[in-house]
Amino acid sequence: MGRKLAFLCGLITFMFSLVATPAEAGFLQQAEGDRVMLAEVQSYGDYELKPAFFQTLADKLAQLLSEQKVPLVYCDSADMTNENGRHSTGNASGTDETLSRIHMDAIVRGHQFNYGFAAAKLIRYADAVVGRKHFYDDAAVKVWREHPAQLYHLTPAVQEQAQQVAKQNGAKYLLFVNDKDVDVRLKHTMFATRTERETRGKKMKASLDYYIVNTETGNVYEGHCDNKKTAQMLNLAIVQTGKGMSVDEMLNQVMEAQANDVAKDFCQNGFPAVKS
């Protein structure tokens, strides 16, 4: 009798547990492992793009990392460009401001920080943290690029803030992307086809740094990629050749290449380095 009663209770409990469990979507079942939060995709260089471009870069990167089974989470404000935090002068909400501060700390403590090509907000932060004695050292950067897996530490107070933000969002690692420079040069050759302004020959160069922060140890991995794209239509005597496209199209293709490079380096070098 006792066994039957226990079985019955078990059965009813099981049924109630079914009732209480809502169906869960497949994309909510994250890949296993400590989670990475896509914290901020922005520019802290002295040139800036419109926020829409950073949103698109964030989308491309998120998709590529998800395809690589990286357990990604996103900030609950859903603005991965963190426009509020990036452009605030101290009056943004707590998380926005903190994310911007962590990103800036990772940049100024990193290997490539250069006062000459930094946004005004980043310069002010660097003045307070590393001081004007800091200078960009070509030789040191060259050595670092040969051994890119050299980690460094966040400022201890900033690491504590990073830990809190990560914990609030169920993550252990924070990923920051600094799309610091995009440069377009018009090309002129005597053979160039005379076309409208949008499709005239041009060359685009873009530089991007990215940072993976292990919030438990405070270790940071810094990655870097340079990408180029050229488009020009040429009439060489009797021969016609080449392609022409708008600046927006070139930028879209460059961002695709940047996202690919970051995702590849993230999985092969960056993530294993900060995990260890």
Binding site: T56, Q240, G242, S246, D248, N252
Partner: peptide, 28 residues
């Protein structure tokens, strides 16, 4: 949903009487 890119890419190739041009809509 977002339309993140729409543009037209021109391409040309060929010589003398054998030549071609095209435009491709690239959309994302």
């Amino acid at each position: 949903g977002y339309l993140t890119n729409i543009s037209s890419i021109k391409a040309q190739s060929g010589a003398l009487g054998l030549k071609g041009k095209d435009k491709t809509v690239d959309l994302e």
